[in-house]
Structure formats: C-alpha cells, structure tokens
C-alpha cells in the first residue's frame, strides 16, 4: 500500500510538469489554432529565469578581512554578495536562499512579455498559413531560443537548489499512520501546479475576460462580429500560456537541473499528453498529464522493469498509440477539432 502511494506521488511531480505544459499548449491551440513547437523552449526560458536570478543575487564584491588570516598570515579576502551588504546579512542570505521561488516574481512579467512579443511578432502572420508552416516556424524558433540560451549559459546542467526550508525529505504519511518519506520540494511543486491549474480554470470560468475567451474558442467569428476585439484577448491568452510554461520551468529547476535542451525533452512528451487528452480540451490535457506521469512512475518500478525491460522508456508512447487507435479524439477530445 505504501509503495503504491509512493509511486503515485512520484508520478505526480512529473505529471504536474506535463500537465502545465500541456495546458499551455492546449490554451494556445484552442484559442489561436496554432501548434506551438516552441512551447518547450518557453518552459526552458522559465527555468533559466531562475538561473539568472540566482546568479544575479550571488553577484558579490571582495573585501579584505583583517580578523581572519590564512596559513601564511595574510588577511583573507571575503566575498560578500551585494544583497547581503544592502539588506543586512540575515535578510540577504534569506533572499539568496529563496532565489527559486523569488524567480517566479520576475518570471511572470518576462514570460508574459516573451509570449506577447512572440505572438505579435511572429505567430500572428501564420494564422492563414497551413498548419505545417506553423509547426515549422515555431520549430525554427525553438532551435534559435535553445541555441541562444546555450550560448549564454553553456551546455551543462546548472544546479538551482531549493530554499533550505523546503529542501530535504518529510514523512508525509505520518498522519495516516503510514511511512511515506518524500522530498518536500516535489510536494511543493505538485501543490504549485494544482494552484496554477485551478487558477487558470477559475480565470476562464468566473471572469468576464475568461467568458469572452471561451466564447471566442467556440466561435471566433461571431464574437468578433459582436464588436469584441477577440484578437487582443487571444494575444493575452498566449502570454498567459507562455507564463504558465515559464512558471512550470522555474519551479522544476530544483527537481532537475536546467540545461538548454530540457524544453525539447518535455515538449515531445507534452505533445503526446495533449493528443492523449484530446486536442483542444483543457481538462483532458490536465487529466492526461497526471495520468501519464503516474503511469510512467509505475512503469519505472523494479517489478515492471524486470518483467518487461525498458518499459519505463516507452510506456507513454505505447499508451498514446493505443489511445489514438481506439479513441482517435483522445480521452476528452471535442468533436470537430482538427478533424479535417
């Protein structure tokens, strides 16, 4: 029982990342009808927002400390980060420690801006072009973004540790009388993802803006004829989708050190998630994300890998193929989406 729960938990954090990226992909596809191959790159840019903030906060100046001496008797040089000098050592150390969660704050405006610029500058011109062209141009953009990040940050993964308070493990089964020891940050990630997903759904469901967007998804032309500037709202939705991917990336850094090709690794799987969930269905994307994450974690158990070697590597693709052959619209796909 404990081990089953543990596997479900294991699946939840990866599933959260899948769900968040797939949610953004579906938002873009549902509103603008564009398949965004650069969405993985947005996830990666988010992760590198955290990396940059961490580096920025660690910028330091050197002072000569007369009280400490090295073994030759010379005074030691001590590095002090600027933030510690400005806000005092305690607050400064706290800020550096909490770099990853703080990066969320800078990632939101950056990702909104990136999404806005991307939509207005590039994708806008591709609405009338065939889907193949949209795939190709966003694919090219993904390569460019990836290479730019590689140029500035190098090819190796960069460690982004979580805050000390959220590092380490906790026995979360204690309250239930079970023994489930689990890394705290992964639980944080799952809660964070749930929060974002809930926020997006609430935003679409309960605000006027969300209502108009949903109406636009159902029938863009009619909404336009009613005198509503639907393009503008869709652009904002693109920005929000980019921000969701970026935030997912920021928080994923401590789980898996970011490198420049992490986006593409996730993108391929997220596409599979979208297809399994049903193109254009937001709940489907989230459901399929968590489902496939959990399935993957079950397939990674020793029992599964000894029964069928390597099942953990291919399970997601196998499921996708089976789903597409039996339910071509995916788990919760709507009729009439992408059926031409």
């Amino acid at each position: 029982m404990d081990s089953i729960l543990l596997q479900i938990l294991n699946g939840l954090d990866k599933g959260s990342a899948y769900a968040l990226i797939a949610l953004g992909l579906t938002l873009i596809f549902g509103t603008l009808g564009v398949v965004n191959f650069a969405h993985g790159a947005l996830f990666m840019i988010g992760a590198f927002c955290a990396v940059s903030l961490q580096r920025l906060l660690n910028l330091s100046f050197e002072t000569i400390d007369e009280t400490q001496k090295d073994f030759l008797g010379n005074p030691l040089k001590v590095k002090t980060p600027y933030v510690e000098a400005w806000f005092g050592p305690d607050v400064g150390a706290w800020i550096i420690d909490w770099a990853v969660p703080l990066a969320l704050l800078i990632a939101i405006p950056i990702m909104l801006a990136v999404g806005y610029i991307m939509e207005r500058g590039l994708i806008k011109h591709f609405y009338k072009r065939p889907h193949a062209d949209q795939i190709l141009v966003t694919f090219g953009l993904a390569i460019v973004l990836q290479e730019i990040v590689k140029y500035f940050f190098g090819a190796n993964p960069i460690q982004t540790p979580p805050p000390d308070a959220l590092n380490g493990v906790a026995n979360i089964g204690a309250a239930l009388g079970m023994d489930i020891v689990y890394p705290v940050w992964r639980i944080v990630y799952f809660c964070f993802a749930t929060l974002i997903i809930g926020g997006i759904f609430a935003f679409l469901q309960f605000t006027t803006f969300g209502m108009v967007v949903r109406a636009g998804m159902a029938d863009r032309e009619t909404v336009g004829l009613l005198g509503i500037n639907i393009d503008r709202r869709f652009t904002i939705m693109f920005g929000i989708a980019a921000a969701v991917a970026g935030l997912a990336g920021v928080m994923y850094g401590p789980i898996n050190p970011p490198n420049y090709h992490m986006g593409m690794d996730f993108l391929v799987l997220s596409f599979v998630v979208v297809v399994v969930g049903g193109m254009g269905s937001l709940p489907g994307a989230v459901l399929a994300g968590f489902l496939l994450g959990i399935l993957e974690s079950f397939a990674s158990t020793t029992w599964a890998t000894t029964t069928i070697p390597g099942i953990n590597q291919i399970i997601i693709y196998l499921v996708a193929i089976i789903v597409l052959l039996t339910r071509p619209r995916g788990l919760m796909g709507r009729k009439g989406v992408m059926e031409d």
Binding site: V35, V274, M279, L324, M338, D340
Partner: peptide, 20 residues
C-alpha cells in the same frame, strides 16, 4: 489513420519510442 498535426505528433512519438 490521422492527418495534419496528429500525424506529425504520432510519427514523432514513434520515432522517440524507437530511439528509446
């Protein structure tokens, strides 16, 4: 069995599966 984007994604999934 599928066309358009579905086809692209399916072939991508198959290729990644073969790679794995």
């Amino acid at each position: 069995r599928r066309s358009g984007i579905y086809f692209s994604i399916l072939t991508l999934a198959f290729a990644q599966m073969s790679f794995a």
